[in-house]
Nucleic acid binder design. Sequence first.
DNA 1: CCCTGCGAGCTTGTATGTAACATAGATACA
DNA 2: TGTATCTATGTTACATACAAGCTCGCAGGG
Lengths: 207, 207
Amino acid sequence: MTSATSRAYDHVKQAILDRAYPGGALLSEGEIASAVGVSRTPVREALLRLETEGLVRLYPKRGALVLPVSAQEISDVFETRELVETFAAGKATLGPDRIDELAGWLEAMRTHAAGGDAREFARADRCFHRTMVAAAGNEIITQLYDALRDRQLRMARLTADDPDRTATAIQDHAEILEAVRTGDRERIRAAVHRHLHTAVTALRGHA
Amino acid sequence: MTSATSRAYDHVKQAILDRAYPGGALLSEGEIASAVGVSRTPVREALLRLETEGLVRLYPKRGALVLPVSAQEISDVFETRELVETFAAGKATLGPDRIDELAGWLEAMRTHAAGGDAREFARADRCFHRTMVAAAGNEIITQLYDALRDRQLRMARLTADDPDRTATAIQDHAEILEAVRTGDRERIRAAVHRHLHTAVTALRGHA
DNA sequence: CCCTGCGAGCTTGTATGTAACATAGATACA
DNA sequence: TGTATCTATGTTACATACAAGCTCGCAGGG
């Protein structure tokens, strides 16, 4: 039996990321509580946590506002992603096992792109990047990165429907993996940089 | 009248940063509640928030463990500070008003160093850096930076008692400010980088 | 027509009660 | 002796109760 707090947390987070609770909506604790089937206390704790993650803003005695995605937020998220990922690319030492892991995620991307499973494709993409970031061995940065990817989920519809985009993405990741295999840090950084650049321009075009 | 939650939060955070609640201590909600004079509910919310800030770890049905500062945490914090600050130094465009602000903090550092007020000295130092980071205009990174500085507070006794250290720090900041005045981004980055390097080695020596 | 004041109905903030869980130490037993 | 179990105690997780704050609409006066 999972805890009431985490059920409330998962419910609200999922609803926000899926836009079931759209940006600008004002949620009340009681509303959520009855939707999830728990009391207000665990809902409150979930909202508190979501506030620190930047998904909602709590207005005293008013309710919880689902923060609309702003242009500022989009550029902040991508700028920070680039900072974190190029840092990680330059620092991480990736042994054979990590390289295998990366190759596994790339393979998963190919599979799910072929199978048309956008959700799983996105998950594999995310895990690929996360593996690289985690390999840099800085827990603060790894945690930050997870939060960034969560936020990014709200910024675009799943883009894996577009075959061009998925093909480009797979190509990009293959290049990153190739660079990782050579061990040339500067080349890795360059590949990661290019990938993020194409990703952000594609997002801007489609959003 | 400030809220019960924020009173509890301030109390616990201050106590942890001042080592009144030392690393390794296991706190209970009730204990804190009666110390602060509020009920357990706001204490709980404060602890939840402190957990996301990395100061405590909540063990279900056990209590809140004040996380001891680990070697890993120290290096993560400083590594991340360097990443953030060199980024900001390279990106921020500092107009005349911002430069005046920096000069003001530097002046404050000089004053408080002379007056022997370690606490205010540290505050001015922090504000100086924060001004530069904020000038980069990325809210996510600015928020991260604040959290990093909070964590750093636990890592060393206030070092402003040592006249050598304060003199070096003032010198470093003066160089950064000078570089900012020239507008040469690469020079700014270099000055920031040097400063952090001397700061972290001094910290390691004294801790 | 516009402004002001007031009340209804929502919301949160906080306190408190209750049940379940975790742990430590004692005790019984092989 | 070592181990399993029982029990006492402390702690949280969650529900609920209640007071106080915010908002909005409406009535009444200018």
